[in-house]
Amino acid sequence: MSARTVLQEADIARALTRIAHEILESNRGAEGLVLLGIPTRGVTLADRLGPIIAGIAETEVPVGSLDITLFRDDLSQHPTRSPKRTDIPDGGIDGKTVVLVDDVLFSGRSIRAALDALQSIGRPAAVRLAILVDRGHRELPIRPDFVGKNIPSSRTERVNVRLKELDGADEVTIES
């Protein structure tokens, strides 16, 4: 298998800064925003986005995580998935603009599961989607609001996101 690097550390940092600006512009500021990362790497990305947004808007933005394991439609194929932690920030999500954060958008099934999980917790005023890498090949009518990079890929290729906090380095590679 050959892998090629499509994003390096500086590219990821730039993409997250741009996403932060776009989120603030779309929301007309930081008021009422809540960031929820989808485990595993979406949580790390949300944890990075929070301080970037806070630095731009000069106000804290609540950051949490949303486990989607029990809402997935492929549990019968992958029954060994262990649930991760759901951490809803103080103040909850009711009436807030929730930005779901994930690393790669592919079929859209994880995001569908996230929407179901979110619905079981509360009723946000709006839900937005921030993705580091959109690789296409959607199976569901789901489109991200904020994208770090569109990376066209074939269904046989694998997009790997590595983040310092989890993997020791920041990079996005494509394996064929």
Rank of each mutant, 00 (worst) to 15 (best):
M1T: 14
S2H: 14
A3R: 15
R4G: 00
R4M: 07
E9P: 01
E9Y: 01
E9M: 00
E9I: 01
E9S: 14
D11I: 00
I12R: 06
R14N: 09
R14S: 13
L16D: 07
L16W: 04
E22K: 12
I23N: 02
L24M: 09
G29Q: 05
G29H: 06
A30Y: 05
A30F: 02
L33R: 06
I38D: 02
R41L: 04
G42N: 04
D47E: 15
G50W: 01
I52V: 15
I53V: 15
A54F: 09
A54M: 08
V63K: 01
G64C: 03
G64M: 05
S65W: 12
L66S: 13
I68Q: 05
L70D: 06
F71V: 00
R72W: 04
D73E: 12
L75C: 00
L75M: 08
L75D: 00
H78G: 00
P79W: 11
S82E: 14
D87P: 00
P89D: 10
D94V: 06
T97A: 02
V99P: 08
V99D: 09
L100V: 08
D103A: 11
F106W: 03
S107Q: 05
R109G: 08
R109C: 03
I111H: 01
R112H: 08
D116F: 02
D116R: 05
A117K: 10
I121S: 03
G122Q: 13
P124V: 04
P124W: 05
A126Q: 15
A126S: 14
R128L: 10
I131R: 03
D134E: 14
D134P: 08
R135T: 06
R138A: 05
E139Q: 10
P141S: 02
I142N: 01
I142D: 01
R143T: 12
F146G: 05
F146L: 06
K149N: 01
K149D: 00
I151M: 08
T156I: 07
R158A: 08
R158Y: 11
N160T: 14
R162D: 12
E165Q: 15
D167K: 05
D167V: 07
G168N: 10
E171N: 13
E171K: 14
V172K: 10
